[in-house]
């Protein structure tokens, strides 16, 4: 059926950044209290958003309340600018707020993130908004909200230390690799959202303002700039981040968080930067990893970053050089993050 005009419909328009002004005020008040009490989860009246829970409704509401017309927005999902969640949220704010967007970490004034902190060091004028699924770090140890609230009020975090100790008793090391609990400003134990523990040290003394929004759970919390954030550990089992045996296969970066990309059904795989902007910028500067396309004679041609898809699917028509070199990849090229960590 073709769409015939049955009458003049007004164009759909939204208030700036979708939310109504009263909702924004309510969220803004929660943000101010969250900043004043670092790491404490402020309850707020989260609204239903035009996207399902689990797609970042908390982060979106925080971004909508903070966003101004002069902001430059960057949205990442597991470090990538071009995955579904990131593209959808970026499009949402382009449509409802008309703000400028970017993929460059250094150009952004506001970065909404799902489960990563950019590799590029953040600056004082930036705001990092995290999407949080379960804000309560004690939730899987104590399901009752009334009890966890008491535990926070009494600064009683023995449960969490028992949990980490049980990791050591069972595995010989602290096996928590993401959503690794932190203590903020020496008081509240906080869930940093499911970022890899690799990113935990970046939260400490960070010049940027960090805001956390959990939509379904209706909580907002914050870490002001230059705040002490300590990952919980024990004297004889100090906190350690994941290490990778090999550098990024595309940009040869070391000391960054790598994603595993399955290349075929014969064990071929590669490890590439999870932060696509960082990886692309390094390739543009001429850094080449072992599986990167050679620099073309015309110079400056940069391959699009192969974003890892769920279940290791690869898009057809990707750079053929990837497949070719994959076949020749040495057995066990690139240790898995966790295997490498145990070995270290």
């Amino acid at each position: 059926m073709t769409s015939q005009h049955t009458g003049e419909m007004p164009a759909i328009s939204y208030n700036f950044a979708y939310l109504d002004e009263q909702t924004k005020r309510m969220i803004r008040r929660a943000i101010l209290k969250a900043i004043a009490i670092p790491g404490y989860q402020v309850p707020f009246a989260a609204r239903e958003m035009p996207m399902p829970y689990g797609w970042g409704t908390g982060g979106v509401q925080v971004t909508a309340a903070v966003l101004g017309p002069d902001d430059v927005l960057k949205v990442i999902d597991q470090g990538a600018d071009d995955t579904t969640n990131a593209v959808a949220i970026r499009g949402f704010f382009e449509k409802t707020a008309g703000v400028a967007t970017t993929t460059a970490t250094t150009e952004a004034t506001l970065i909404q993130t799902r489960h990563r902190i950019p590799e590029t060091k953040l600056s004082e004028n930036q705001i990092l908004v995290y999407q949080v699924p379960i804000p309560e770090p004690l939730r899987f140890l104590e399901p009752r909200e009334t009890e966890t609230r008491q535990l926070h009020a009494l600064e009683e975090y023995g449960l969490m230390h028992v949990k980490l100790y049980e990791d050591i008793a069972r595995h010989g090391h602290i096996a928590t690799t993401y959503a690794y609990p932190v203590e903020v400003a020496g008081r509240y134990v906080m869930d940093p959202s499911p970022i890899p523990k690799f990113d935990n040290p970046k939260m400490d003394d960070c010049p940027a303002l960090q805001l956390f929004g959990a939509g379904r759970e209706k909580r907002i919390y914050a870490i002001p700039p230059y705040t002490t954030v300590r990952s919980l550990d024990f004297e004889d089992h100090p906190f350690k981040v994941q290490r990778f045996a090999k550098p990024c296969a595309l940009c040869a970066a070391t000391g960054v968080y790598l994603d595993e990309v399955i290349l075929d059904d014969r064990g071929g795989r590669m490890f590439v930067c999870s932060d696509t902007d960082y990886c692309n910028a390094r390739q543009a500067e001429g850094h080449r990893g072992e599986m990167a396309a050679p620099v073309s004679s015309s110079g400056g041609a940069v391959l699009p970053h192969p974003t890892p898809l769920p279940h290791g699917e690869r898009e057809q028509g990707d750079a053929p050089s990837l497949t070719l070199t994959a076949r020749g990849a040495p057995e066990g090229a690139g240790e898995g993050p966790f295997g490498a960590e145990i070995a270290s």
Binding site: N15, F16, E21, K24, R25, R28, I31, L32, I35, A36, A65, V66, L67, G68, P69, L209, P224, P225
Partner: peptide
């Protein structure tokens, strides 16, 4: 302009408490 004025004032208050 209630929308943008309120946003600007909030941002000033937010940075004031952050710094």
């Amino acid at each position: 302009d209630p929308v943008f004025a309120a946003q600007g004032v909030f941002r000033a208050a937010m940075w004031a408490l952050s710094r």
